[in-house]
Design a protein around this nucleic acid. Sequence first.
DNA 1: AAGATATTGAACATAAATAAACATTAAGCA
DNA 2: TGCTTAATGTTTATTTATGTTCAATATCTT
Lengths: 259, 259
Amino acid sequence: MDQNTEITGIARREKIYDTIKENTTVTVKELSSRFAVSDMTIRRDLHIMEEQGILTVHYGGATLRRPSMAFHSFDMRKEDFYAEKVSIARCAAELIHENDVIYLDPSTTVLLMTRFLPPLHVTVVTSSLSVMEECAHNPYVNLFIAPGKYHAEYGGTMDAETMTYLSGFHFTSAFLGTGFIDTVYGVTSTEIDCSIKQAIMRNSEKSILLVDHSKFGHRVMKKFGDIRDFNTIITDSGIDPKDERAILQQGVKLQICDS
Amino acid sequence: MDQNTEITGIARREKIYDTIKENTTVTVKELSSRFAVSDMTIRRDLHIMEEQGILTVHYGGATLRRPSMAFHSFDMRKEDFYAEKVSIARCAAELIHENDVIYLDPSTTVLLMTRFLPPLHVTVVTSSLSVMEECAHNPYVNLFIAPGKYHAEYGGTMDAETMTYLSGFHFTSAFLGTGFIDTVYGVTSTEIDCSIKQAIMRNSEKSILLVDHSKFGHRVMKKFGDIRDFNTIITDSGIDPKDERAILQQGVKLQICDS
DNA sequence: AAGATATTGAACATAAATAAACATTAAGCA
DNA sequence: TGCTTAATGTTTATTTATGTTCAATATCTT
């Protein structure tokens, strides 16, 4: 309405923030005419604000980034290899049986599994806040929550008490994600995450690894398992044939889902 | 209802998601006329959302994927005396100090406190999923999550392990809610809830009860505390003067917030 | 079960939005 | 003043979202 004064840069972005806070969503056109600047400028503004985590840009405009709720904000769909992760998750969910007791890891790919849970009675144990949110209203799911200090970077609890609590369960299957897999060195993660995952795997009849192809060939300091420690590895069709062979040679079942 | 001015792409799909979350099922016709787009566009939207696992398309429309149903006693309670609860929560939040270690009960009124948390560093311990969600992204909050089986009717964990975990903390203040308060008999709740609340109160320097006026004069089987076990009781101006006097006579600080 | 009606998806067409590269302007400052 | 930098505008090819037509298919009606 009133842009009498020439607004520029940060000041304009603050106004944009005010607008999007009210309306939840804004369009490029609407903003460019309101501030009498070019579409390109608005687009640049929106991208800056997206970098700052304020909003999510999409074709035509942007939407306020809502703080909580894994799926309610669609930031997740901006995850790399989202489509691949969805198909991996879909495949993984098919491995669930009636009365299973399953562990669901704090991982975006594993989280997607909650979307494809079959209508079977299962017990879900998790330390992931997003998984809790998704399972809380699912009448088929018996949900158990692991304690500890919440870490925003993992989206869940992760400390000694988390591990102790989780060690008290016996799982029929554990669904694990990872950021780093190397068919020679094995699967790696952070110190505490490794400890927890190892505890889980010790207490699980089956360990299933969900990992998209982009994670292959990378590793960090601490290893939580070798390839052969998993019963099944589920990945997408982007996997390198060499890695595929390496996994099969180690006698591990490999499931490749096309995205 | 609809000033859906030129909603496009993702933004429209978000709205579709909101709609289907409420109604469980949507039709193509209904959506295409509501958003003033062609049927084909809606169909494409629905297919994208099906691919993402959000819903299942069928002839004529789509249905929410998640087996929803019981959209829960806990969510329903959010309605009664909402304004009163908000002002009670706002008052309660003012009792928080820098570096406090506080317990937040699974209760709708206590949950509302998370909206009014002052910009002070606090440690929040909770067994309430909603509290977790609200606090997870609050940079001032150090969040600790209590374990156990999740009960949809309480919106949080509530079992022996929950109690054991919570007993390990020392709180500067505990913020508790209740459904039943009687100035003569005391404050009552379910068996397990009582056990947990008592454990909390034993380990807390201060116990603060948040209760709107509609809860007075009611009681159930098990008591978790007498009026005088609380340092402060916060309620709204609808409280009966008799109850007000009864509380003050027992030497308990009473805070009445106008709604 | 057969015919009537409505819904669908595929192929194509079109308009709009985008990112990238480059041009221009404004602003600070030695 | 002239130099430098940051912000904005412009032009381009490319991508994306949406609309349209039509044959195939599903659902309803009797």
